[in-house]
Write a protein that binds this DNA or RNA. Structure first.
Lengths: 155, 155
DNA sequence: CGATTGTTGATAATGATTACTAAAAATGTC
DNA sequence: GACATTTTTAGTAATCATTATCAACAATCG
């Protein structure tokens, strides 16, 4: 490839500093994760990567999601439905709709007071924090939305 | 059984209202989860229950953890290391030590303002929220604690 | 008691993730 | 570019956690 965009160059440098290479597979896997805010599972990433790299192996997808998460290039999240990945590495919170299961990003408040309070109470060193909200999203609150109990559409 | 304590009676009533029975297995599984604040995995619960009921089946443990969680008698939590259970159903936050992996309970602040703010910003209905803190706990900060990077003891 | 319903233990089945390995690709050196 | 070295890949087997199945058992109710 003759041209590379700036982001790819920066990423390449980041990886190289750790003895890692920016392969075609790795780049596309990252692009797929970054292209959505739907917090995809490994299986979903695999399906989408395969549209662009039909011969990619599922193991390659898993391996790279893990590697990229370890490098901090993307983040890993777990909830009872399984492990999900998030290309948005900026600090942010999440809202999980108990009716439809969708996970929405919520901008984090700039709130170092919260960390400081926990640190002073526990004596622990707080490096990071994230809040998970649970409730019903706009779509599910409206008539026709899904009930959180029955999962059926409301009228 | 001739005597039952009040808690067991209340639980029995709760379950009966849903057509569920308080069996020996179910009661002991719950007791085991409640007896620790270590947020045990299903495998750990199984090992401990077996000390009191040597013939219990792993499937019974899974089945009941799921059932009890569905009844709201205990809660289910997931992180990248897997699914864990929490007998403390009071609203509280968590602190995960990135060095040793231990999960500590952190008393929740009485903070409806946080929920209200998210609700007004998103238009969603917020039913619940929980904050996850990450950092190094007291033991791991001290000399001899584990480095979050290498996992080795520090000197 | 007898009928009904819920539960258990044992184990098979499933699904997600990881381990393994020979071949291929990327990188560095001349 | 050719070569040696290192990393990565595809394909697949292995592992691990969880769930499904089902016949036997236990609790509950009339």
């Amino acid at each position: 490839m003759i041209t590379k965009n700036v982001a790819a160059l920066a990423l390449d440098a980041t990886l190289h500093a750790r003895g890692l290479r920016l392969t075609r597979q790795r780049r596309i896997i990252l692009e797929v994760v970054r292209a959505t805010d739907a917090h995809p599972t490994a299986a979903l990433v695999y399906r989408r990567v395969r549209r662009r790299l039909p011969r990619v192996s599922l193991a390659t997808v898993y391996r790279n999601l893990r590697t990229l998460a370890a490098e901090g290039v993307l983040t890993e999240r777990a909830d009872p439905s399984g492990v999900r990945f998030d290309g948005n590495t900026a600090s942010h919170d999440h809202f999980t709709c108990v009716a439809c299961g969708r996970i929405y990003d919520v901008p984090a408040r700039a709130d170092r007071a919260v960390r400081a309070r926990v640190a002073s109470r526990t004596g622990f060193e707080v490096l990071n924090h994230r809040t998970e909200f649970y409730g019903r999203c706009g779509a599910c609150r409206r008539p026709g939305g899904r009930s959180p109990v029955t999962g059926q559409r409301r009228k």
